[in-house]
């Protein structure tokens, strides 16, 4: 009843880590860490030896000290910024992906609405932020809108591209087997769009933080908010440069963590099948 065993074919199991790959993985963590360590050390020594006043360039040790001393204030601000960042990201993800699905269901919807998405994207948020702050009653909502405007476009455009990039023969196959629109979306278009969507999410994660910070700057003291950007402005007025650096440091770390967590998500979801997760030697 059967075809013979495919002995002419070879089965290529998922590769494990070779010693060389392990070494590379360790190097990836250790080498940038070493370079960073040296840079911080050089900064510390440079500032100490040249006796640079701390209101011009504080030493890393002073920044660390400020970070610990002002932790209460800074941590509160971080939470405020994070709240805006993540709410914006969630709304951008839902809105961007949802709109992309809508766009691919109807060409007319895409033709009608895509230009508006582009207009929102190309207008610098810093230029619209003051307007939004005037029109929207609560500052929190205004900040959220600003961050959302920046974050949603990469998700929208990437997901749209992904939904349209499903293999044509596979689409024919679905048609052949009488798949409904919904089945085609669920079992073909969405999985095919996943790598693109995740790529968009990686960009949007960073952008929503940037959007939140920029909007906080635009709100300025009028914002009465207490996000990290507000702390930077406030420290600037008071010439409290170490605290400015401390807040800046927290923003960078947050951005890095967001990027890393989405990279991890990307890896977990795609490692079994997508080309981007495959390393092959030549």
């Amino acid at each position: 009843m059967t075809m013979s065993r495919p002995d002419d074919d070879e089965f290529i199991p998922l590769p494990g880590l070779t010693p060389a790959q392990k070494r590379e993985r360790i190097a990836r963590l250790v080498l940038p860490g070493l370079i960073l360590g040296f840079a911080v050390l050089a900064w510390e020594i440079g500032v100490t030896v040249n006796e640079v006043p701390h209101y011009i360039l504080p030493a890393p040790s002073l920044i660390a000290e400020t970070l610990i001393k002002d932790w209460g204030t800074l941590y509160g601000s971080l939470l405020v910024t994070l709240q805006i960042t993540f709410s914006a990201l969630i709304v951008a993800t839902l809105g961007g992906a949802g709109l992309a699905i809508l766009f691919t269901q109807s060409k007319w919807v895409e033709i009608s609405f895509f230009p508006f998405a582009v207009i929102l994207q190309v207008t610098p948020v810093i230029a619209i932020a003051p307007l939004i702050l005037i029109y929207v009653d609560t500052v929190q909502v205004a900040l959220l809108i600003c961050a959302w405007i920046v974050a949603f476009f990469p998700i929208l455009s990437n997901t749209t591209l992904g939904l349209n990039s499903a293999d044509h023969n596979l689409r024919n196959l679905f048609e052949l087997y009488g798949a409904t629109r919904w089945q085609t979306l669920l079992h073909l278009r969405l999985p095919a769009a996943m790598p693109y969507f995740l790529g968009g999410l990686k960009i949007a994660g960073g952008l929503s933080l940037i959007g939140a910070i920029v909007a906080e700057f635009a709100a300025g003291s009028a914002g009465s908010g207490s996000g990290l950007a507000y702390r930077i402005l406030e420290s600037g007025y008071r010439l409290n440069i170490p605290r400015m650096f401390a807040a800046l440091f927290m923003i960078s770390i947050t951005g890095i963590l967001i990027f890393m967590s989405f990279s991890l998500l990307n890896h977990v979801l795609l490692r079994r099948w997508h080309e981007s997760a495959i390393k092959r030697e030549n």
């Binding site: 009843m1 059967t2 075809m3 013979s4 065993r5 495919p6 074919d9 089965f11 290529i12 495959i278």
Partner: peptide
């Protein structure tokens, strides 16, 4: 899968297979 001689490969992903096996 038995007809095409691929019993036991249920859990494999396409990229782990050779061209002939994918066609099977």
């Amino acid at each position: 899968l038995e007809m095409v001689g691929l019993t036991g490969f249920e859990k494999a992903y396409p990229r782990e297979l050779s061209g002939g096996m994918k066609m099977r």
